[in-house]
Design a protein around this nucleic acid. Sequence first.
DNA 1: AATGAATGAGTGTTCATTCAT
DNA 2: GATGAATGAACACTCATTCAT
Lengths: 228, 228, 228, 228
Amino acid sequence: MPKPKQTPAKTLTSNAAQRSKRVTRARGPSPDKTAHTKASIVRAALAEFLDKGFADSTIAGVAQRAGVAKGTPYRYFATKEALFAGVVQQELVGALGEILEERRGRDESVQAFLRRTLLIALGEIERKGRAAIARLVIVEGVRFPALVEIYRREMFDPVLDQIKRLAPVARRRGELPDDRLIRHPHLLIAPVWMGILNNQLIDREHPIDIARLFEAQLELMFSGEAQR
Amino acid sequence: MPKPKQTPAKTLTSNAAQRSKRVTRARGPSPDKTAHTKASIVRAALAEFLDKGFADSTIAGVAQRAGVAKGTPYRYFATKEALFAGVVQQELVGALGEILEERRGRDESVQAFLRRTLLIALGEIERKGRAAIARLVIVEGVRFPALVEIYRREMFDPVLDQIKRLAPVARRRGELPDDRLIRHPHLLIAPVWMGILNNQLIDREHPIDIARLFEAQLELMFSGEAQR
Amino acid sequence: MPKPKQTPAKTLTSNAAQRSKRVTRARGPSPDKTAHTKASIVRAALAEFLDKGFADSTIAGVAQRAGVAKGTPYRYFATKEALFAGVVQQELVGALGEILEERRGRDESVQAFLRRTLLIALGEIERKGRAAIARLVIVEGVRFPALVEIYRREMFDPVLDQIKRLAPVARRRGELPDDRLIRHPHLLIAPVWMGILNNQLIDREHPIDIARLFEAQLELMFSGEAQR
Amino acid sequence: MPKPKQTPAKTLTSNAAQRSKRVTRARGPSPDKTAHTKASIVRAALAEFLDKGFADSTIAGVAQRAGVAKGTPYRYFATKEALFAGVVQQELVGALGEILEERRGRDESVQAFLRRTLLIALGEIERKGRAAIARLVIVEGVRFPALVEIYRREMFDPVLDQIKRLAPVARRRGELPDDRLIRHPHLLIAPVWMGILNNQLIDREHPIDIARLFEAQLELMFSGEAQR
DNA sequence: AATGAATGAGTGTTCATTCAT
DNA sequence: GATGAATGAACACTCATTCAT
């Protein structure tokens, strides 16, 4: 059921439309308008889903937020599920992109590198409401395993893999007092999830500072002294 | 109108009720059967909600699982929402009870005490499917803030308070190398949540050993040596 | 469907029970209690039906008002419809009884006789809430043609017949200036219905004095002077 | 949400709308069809309600009569109650309109004027099934006080006010032998209600001629001779 | 006789989806 | 491409009725 039913022709078509813009502009719908319509729908859908969750969202509600007719979203997404999956997926894919591109400086300690990159990522997360997306994926994960998979592939595993890759390096560099991070890479990102859960779901009124919590954990694992 | 008519401490009391029969009720349906019916419904409802989440569960489905007619659950819970809340609440309340009753032995280190009690609690969690309940609360939390509140009151805050209370003691006893745990009590339970999230939602196929993860964090924070 | 399904054994049985009272009173249910229970139910049912009409009344509501269990009314009336019909019918039958027994005095004018008897009847109507019953019959008449028939037979037609019988007499006695009442016997009772409709349904806040309205009509038809 | 989107003065306007097409709506479903659908529903609903009363009518039944799907009525009326109220109200408002516009001729007696106008009104009532509407309002009045109020405001009170206004005029013109009509204006319309009740509810098999009954009352009150 | 737990048919209402315009 | 009227499957909830106790 979840099968997102992608409409991969979309991007291609719009490019084609883009090109044909200069050539033939005699009649027919404007490709700009089309792109704009789709963007409106996607934006509206994300807002609706974040507000109400999948089950309580309605296509009519999305259409209204987007300022289009009720049937219009169906031109871009075949079903409500496809809309949900498409919108969330779009939000997820490439979200991490830039961050993992970062390269550790020649003399940079692993700890400093992780602090630098992950704090940036955390800032991103907080700023762009990505934590809300994470919550949405978690919340709808049972119904949309495919989404969770994407999330894992695009966000969760890459970060974990990065840690798994860097931990031995740090150990070799004498930054780690023991093999704990190598054996339990999850330990380093646990505070981030603790923070997201607390701030998004458990205790919205007393949010904790995720960045600070993560830093404390980082220092804890990297034996504290070896900072640079 | 349905007024669930609590039959507190069901199994035990029902026998007593049998005996006191002539006092309260000389005729009419058996209270035993009632208790049994309600228990069936609650059990079925929990299973249904865990399987499908709130929105995709149906009262008919619950009734079918419980082997009763479609209207029967309404005798015990006025609405689908009440059924959900009631079932989850019943599962949560008192769940921590015994654990928090545990007293630290005169010579017992704080670390040993926490290891002992929280590992027991973790065992409970894994054994009784409480992790699934936690997931359910998280997943439906947006729609049922009241449930989240119960969860916070009955589970989350008590554990956190325990940590907040014990951290200074441990510090005084020389078990902690710094004030980290005092400033960031969430840090100690973060691995537990990390584990629940990973095992219940993100990567069911590669579950991590939550107890071991927690132990690692415990040792990490308690400077490792001071164990007893 | 309306078929009231009478339980005519009732009265007989209770008499039998009455008699056996003095004889055997060793065990078994008390007939007094039974009669009392039934009376409670009938009273409660009437109140419920007057309050809410047939469709919105519930057996549970009737039982609650009567202070009995939900199943108990079924011991006296097979269905909800039978309960309704039985209750209303019981309220109607014999309601006119005494009034129609009244005999015109030897020297009494027809007008005086009608004034005397019908004013008594009107008093009855107002006092005992019979107008509400009339309204109920009117309101539920489409669903319960049988009830309407009873009403017509027990209330409407007898009064009309009385008028039809007396009109020629009055004409002969010189009390009537023309044949109008003979040709239009409905004319005399029209003001009563006008009053019931107005007071019960159309304008409860400005009730009109039905007795006075009827008197005015009476005098109007009886040419005013010929009173005795 | 449904917002009935009034299409006032349907038939006439729709042509105009056709022409103004390019202004308001370039595409999409036909407004004609819409108007037709709504009219079907309203007609079907009125029939259903007259047949069965409010409680026994079903939306599915209305839809079936109208030849539309079960959900369609909800596009025009948010609830079953709204459908009922809307349909009946529409039937009531303006029903009297034309009649009360009638002006009494310079030399016309009040009696002649009342006879002329009210007999027309009665004809209307009988012809268009307005008596059935009156019955419906009466029958459902307890549940829909608002409807009764409309009825009173639109039908009942205007007629009564007319009588109250004309009675003194007639008295001054010497058409009335006494003050009876002034003190009891209800008396004049009582026969009409008597007739409606008899014909619609009490004795459908022996309907009385309401117009004739009313005329008799009119002559009775206007002392018979003063006719012109 | 009385109870009230259990039943299940029936209905109002929602909303994803379709399609004529 | 866009519209929004129409569809109809699905579901929460009610309540008359039954029957074991």
